[in-house]
Simulated scan of single mutants.
Amino acid sequence: MIEIVAYDRRWPSVFASLRDGLVGPLAGLVDRIEHVGSTAVPGLAARDVIDLTAVVDTLGHLPAVIGRLAPLGYSHEGDLGVTGRHAFTTPAGAPAHHLYVCTADNLDFAQMLAFRDYLRTHPDTARAYAELKYFLASRFRDDRAGYTAAKSAFITRIVATAAKITDS
């Protein structure tokens, strides 16, 4: 079920705790771990799920990453349809989160960062996005694919706007 909740001030600290628990096990393989998705935008309503992306130099590190994450309870799920981005299950008992691994030059990752950063600096756009998410969550309550697809035009427009600003 799709449920959008008001911004929770604990989300940054939940992200930090999850990141900190991964830094040691992934040392030498991961360059950085980014807080992405709506929970990474202060004040933005979101699903109560933290999205993290671990950035590697090369996907050649992926087998080692998979091996180091397994004892922590993560299982590799493949790319789930997003080329070059690998998803992992959430360990039992952990806060709700999605962990992904990709390279810094992954286009989807770059767009995700552009979208996040634009929303962080444009509160009116973030509010409009929250309103859209509430509306779509009620319309697509049990249809995650439909919910995600319905947000795509808004996201694409904002990513394009962010790219124009960067190119200026």
Rank of each mutant, 00 (worst) to 15 (best):
E34S: 05
A16M: 11
R120S: 13
H97T: 03
A130I: 11
L52I: 02
R144A: 14
F140C: 06
L80Y: 04
D8A: 02
L22M: 04
A40G: 04
G78T: 05
I165S: 05
G81H: 12
R157H: 14
G84A: 08
A110G: 14
G78L: 05
A130L: 11
R157P: 09
D57P: 08
S17N: 11
D79C: 14
P91M: 09
V14Q: 09
P42W: 01
F115T: 06
R32D: 06
A64N: 04
F135C: 14
P91C: 07
A16V: 13
V30I: 05
D57K: 08
D124Q: 15
Y100R: 02
S17I: 12
A114L: 15
G73Y: 01
Y147N: 08
E3G: 04
T161V: 10
F109T: 07
M112W: 15
I33S: 00
L18N: 01
P63M: 01
A137I: 03
L119N: 03
I165R: 10
R157G: 14
G67R: 02
R157S: 14
L80K: 07
T148F: 09
D108T: 11
T121C: 12
E131Y: 15
R144C: 13
I2N: 02
A150F: 11
I155Y: 02
R141S: 05
L44N: 00
S13R: 10
G84N: 07
M1G: 09
D31M: 15
I2F: 02
D31F: 13
R141E: 02
L113K: 09
H35Q: 04
S38I: 03
F135I: 07
V159Y: 01
V56F: 04
L107E: 14
T90K: 03
H98D: 02
D105V: 15
H61Q: 09
D31Y: 09
V159I: 13
I66W: 00
F140G: 04
E3F: 07
F154M: 08
I165F: 08
T121V: 10
R120I: 15
I158T: 09
R47W: 00
A128Q: 12
F135K: 15
T53D: 01
L62V: 04
H98P: 06
V65T: 06
A6G: 06
Y74G: 00
D142R: 13
L44H: 00
L29H: 06
S38P: 02
L72Q: 06
R144W: 14
A153M: 09
F88H: 01
I50D: 00
A110N: 12
A6R: 07
L80N: 10
D31A: 14
S13D: 06
F115V: 13
L52P: 00
A64S: 06
R127Q: 12
T148E: 12
P12T: 07
R157E: 14
N106S: 13
G43H: 04
D117P: 15
T58W: 03
D142H: 14
L107G: 13
T89M: 08
R9E: 06
F109W: 10
V23L: 09
G84Y: 05
I33L: 08
L52W: 00
A94K: 01
H35Y: 03
L26T: 00
I4Q: 07
G60V: 08
T161H: 09
P25Y: 08
D108F: 07
A87V: 05
A16P: 10
